[in-house]
């Protein structure tokens, strides 16, 4: 069980809703999977923590309330410095993204827990959501002026046919890089952790010498775990910062 580093990413059904009779089309069958379970756990944890910790509305914050406030200020400052005051209308959006990714990443660190963000479709969906918001808001706010994003200022007309495709590809690469970065970091980190943890298990089953030999992978696992916690937080931060920067492009398309 613990030896297969891939298994932790496997999606298994917990129960299914609807579609009782015909299984072959799967048309109306909705599976509640372990992935879905951890999404729900993530959301419930975030909401419960933030809402319960601020229940007292203390003028002098307690420890938990202070943590909530720090998260708030942290993201608020991030959005404000990247996207300006106008970007603050997206503050709840960026905050939700940040918290979702952060908590999902951190939950993934717990052994036997499923890492929601280690699936490309999840990170890709989040990135597409970001880029959709950018595009929709960009057009809503600037109209066709949003297309200036693809026309760098001060470029002579005859190179535009070359520059514009490059800019478009550059723009389209954003959701890809956003999602791939998060996904790859979580996936790679977890696989590495699992592999080293697997070494410990298989080595220690070899007897006394094996236990001695397992100390090295054990030390590696501890170090990697620390690193992974850092990476989890950092990737959530990067995701949120880049979201703010892209939103800034929607607000000020000419750069």
């Amino acid at each position: 069980m613990a030896n297969d580093p891939i298994k932790q990413f496997k999606i298994t059904d917990i129960f299914t809703i609807g579609g009782a009779g015909e299984g072959e089309t799967g048309g109306f069958e909705i599976a509640f999977t372990n992935s879905a379970l951890f999404m729900v756990i993530t959301v419930v944890s975030i909401s419960a923590f933030l809402i319960l910790s601020t229940r007292g509305r203390g003028l002098v914050p307690g420890r938990l309330q202070l943590l909530s406030e720090m998260l708030y200020e942290f993201v608020a400052n991030m959005v404000r410095s990247s996207a300006g005051t106008e970007g603050m209308k997206f503050f709840p959006f960026v905050f939700s993204l940040f918290m979702f990714v952060l908590v999902a990443n951190l939950f993934g660190m717990v052994p036997y827990f499923f890492t929601v963000t280690s699936h490309i479709i999840v990170t890709f969906a989040l990135a597409m959501l970001v880029i959709s918001v950018v595009i929709i808001y960009g057009f809503m706010r600037n109209g066709l002026g949003f297309l200036k994003l693809f026309v760098p200022a001060g470029v002579p007309g005859y190179v535009l046919p070359i520059v514009i495709p490059i800019e478009i590809v550059s723009f389209l690469s954003r959701p890809i890089s956003l999602s791939v970065r998060l996904f790859a970091n979580m996936l790679a980190g977890h696989i590495t952790l699992k592999v080293f943890a697997g070494f410990i298990v298989s080595l220690s089953s070899l007897g006394a010498v094996g236990v001695l030999g397992a100390t090295l992978p054990f030390a590696m696992t501890v170090a990697l775990t620390a690193l992974e916690f850092l990476v989890s937080a950092l990737q959530a931060y990067v995701f949120a910062v880049l979201t703010s920067m892209y939103l800034n492009d929607a607000i000020h398309p000419s750069h």
Binding site: E69, E73, S81, V169, S173, I176, V238
Partner: peptide, 25 residues
């Protein structure tokens, strides 16, 4: 709380940013 987001990402974040931005394009 003096938690101004460090505008400079830490080295790891920078590296992972630049790498994927390149590959993604």
């Amino acid at each position: 709380y003096q938690t101004k987001p460090k505008e400079h990402l830490s080295g790891h974040a920078k590296a992972s940013r630049l790498g994927t931005e390149f590959i993604a394009a």
